[in-house]
């Protein structure tokens, strides 16, 4: 059921959308299932203004300091960070793999671009995830309509610009439908230029 609206104090800078912060951690080696993924997903905060965002963010652990197999998800209010959610089920995500050491800076740039509406794709963005893994960190940006090539191209180009990535960084797109089929988030992806 929908959560109540987040109140914004007079004078606060309201964001275009309200967002929820989620955290999840998976025991390494354990088979991921929809059920245990759902159980591991914890809602840790909600914000609707720039001031509320910074109040949460300044208390959040930076990706570089998180244990492996942890994920932070920042999603628009009403959208659960699951493939099966109504807003996600026809969507997909851009995947950017980062070598260790880049995640905290890139993640911050990613969030600021999302909250600041720099993607200019209307309501297409659902949320973003930073996934801390053993040998790499992965940023993903989820959008509603995987088939909308104009939108996914625009998201990719904005991502490249705001993350300030090295020019040879490979970006991959994966539909949530494909993730559901092969039960994996980052395997069997479609490299940029498909």
């Amino acid at each position: 059921k929908p959560l109540p609206p987040v109140e914004v104090k007079p004078g606060d800078h309201r964001l275009q959308f309200t967002y929820n912060i989620w955290f999840s951690r998976r025991a390494p080696g354990k088979q991921a299932t929809t059920q245990n993924y759902d159980q591991n997903l914890k809602l840790i905060g909600r914000f609707a203004s720039v001031e509320q965002f910074w109040a949460y963010y300044s208390r959040l652990v930076r990706p570089a300091d998180l244990n492996s197999h942890s994920d932070i998800h920042i999603f628009k209010d009403g959208i659960k960070p699951m493939w099966e959610d109504a807003a996600n089920k026809n969507g997909g995500k851009w995947i950017v793999r980062l070598r260790k050491g880049l995640a905290s800076r890139c993640w911050e740039n990613m969030i600021l671009a999302m909250l600041g509406e720099q993607f200019m794709v209307g309501d297409e963005i659902c949320g973003a995830v930073i996934s801390v893994r053993f040998q790499e960190d992965i940023i993903s940006v989820w959008n509603r309509t995987a088939q909308d090539t104009a939108t996914t191209t625009r998201i990719r180009d904005t991502l490249k610009r705001v993350l300030n990535l090295p020019p040879n960084t490979v970006m991959e797109y994966k539909t949530h439908n494909d993730s559901l089929k092969d039960h994996s988030s980052f395997r069997n992806t479609r490299a940029d230029g498909y």
Binding site: G11, D12, H13, R14, L15, Q16, V50, E51, F53, W54, A55, S58, N109, L112, A113, L115, G116, E117, Q118, V162
Partner: peptide
Amino acid sequence: GTRIIYERTFLMQMRNSPLAK
């Protein structure tokens, strides 16, 4: 309505605002 757009520099300035503490 109008889309609320914030540039990165503005958001970064707001980080140090006492209101965000």
